[in-house]
């Protein structure tokens, strides 16, 4: 067990190191750098000043030195300075995380509370019209681009209520705050719920085919009891995994949804920073996302092992 943990942690570090290399290299082949973007608002590029600013920002250093500076700082908890705002990158990133976390949490809650029950129903009623209908609806849900769904929700909101929830850093009441997050969360969550529903359904079906369910059935246990106490209990495991996988899936939806709804979260910030060529922000944000994904996967594996006595880690 311990050796497995050590091995996993080591691999995680290797992965993160690789990501840092990939991202760093990718950002350096981007045509144009921050200095050009900074000059954009000034309407010209002054070559002498450009060289000076590049020097100030350390962009004249050899790539290896730039990389070492970044990683060195990262290990000491110093993420450098945003080129645009000239504030510490950490101070720019940190306050945006809770906003996205709230949105992601609500979206996940929405996705699970819609997807799991529907998936179970669909599996239990396999090959009925209801199952058929739910499968088509979930497939359709997966086919909608997240930003389009967001736009449609915006349009519907305008048509129905004549207004839309606009992000406000200091909402007047709990209710305002909830509405502000709930609508975009629904836009993100709806797609995820379709995925969760489909995966829940298939893992339920898998379980329903197992021997012990057949045994329970032959012993005369009621269908209801079989479905909900035996089968669902066992299907929970794969569902946990799915929710882990969802974390990565959600981020894509969050990026476009935060853009559509003008929410100043960390996901949209990534797009803005890429546009600005604000390397310190992009690098650190991508690393942050990678850490979240890697850690979530790790935790899911551990959870899986903890929940299922049949699985022995490291076997």
């Amino acid at each position: 067990m311990l050796s497995y943990l050590v091995q996993r942690l080591f691999l995680m570090l290797v992965t993160l190191f690789g990501i840092s290399l990939v991202i760093f290299a990718l950002l350096r082949i981007v045509p144009g750098n921050i200095v050009d973007v900074l000059f954009d608002a000034a309407g010209f590029v002054d070559p002498a000043e450009k060289i000076k600013i590049e020097k100030d920002l350390g962009l004249d250093q050899p790539i290896v030195v730039q990389y070492a500076t970044w990683i060195g700082g990262l290990l000491r908890g110093d993420l450098g300075f945003s080129y645009v705002s000239e504030k510490p990158a950490l101070a720019e990133i940190l306050p945006r995380i809770p906003i996205t976390a709230r949105l992601a949490g609500l979206a996940l809650l929405f996705a699970v509370s819609l997807g799991v029950p529907l998936g179970v129903v669909s599996a239990v009623k396999q090959n009925t019209r209801l199952d058929y209908f739910l499968r088509v609806v979930s497939l359709a849900g997966l086919s909608l681009p997240a930003f389009w769904l967001g736009l449609l929700i915006l349009m519907a909101s305008v048509a129905l209520f004549g207004t839309i929830p606009i992000y406000n850093a200091a909402p007047k009441s709990m209710w305002d705050s909830f509405v502000m997050y709930a609508v975009p969360a629904a836009a993100v969550g709806l797609r995820s719920s379709a995925l969760i529903m489909r995966l829940t359904r298939s893992s339920m079906l898998e379980v329903l085919r197992q021997d012990y369910i057949r045994t329970a059935r032959s012993k005369g246990a009621s269908e209801r009891s079989i479905n909900y106490s035996h089968a669902l209990k066992n299907a929970i495991l794969p569902i946990v995994t799915i929710i882990g996988v969802e974390a990565a899936f959600l981020i894509g939806g969050l990026i476009v949804t935060e853009t559509v709804f003008n929410i100043p979260g960390v996901a949209r910030f990534l797009v803005e920073a890429i546009r600005w060529r604000d390397y310190p922000i992009v690098q650190n944000l991508v690393m942050f996302i990678a850490v979240v994904v890697v850690v979530v996967n790790f935790v899911v594996d551990l959870l899986y092992a903890a929940l299922d006595p049949r699985i022995k880690l490291g076997a």
Partner: peptide
């Protein structure tokens, strides 16, 4: 001055009286 990059969203906010 809330920063709203999407003009459509901003105009909706204005029409709704939030701006």
């Amino acid at each position: 001055l809330p920063i709203i990059a999407n003009r459509s969203t901003a105009m909706l906010g204005f029409i709704a009286g939030q701006i």
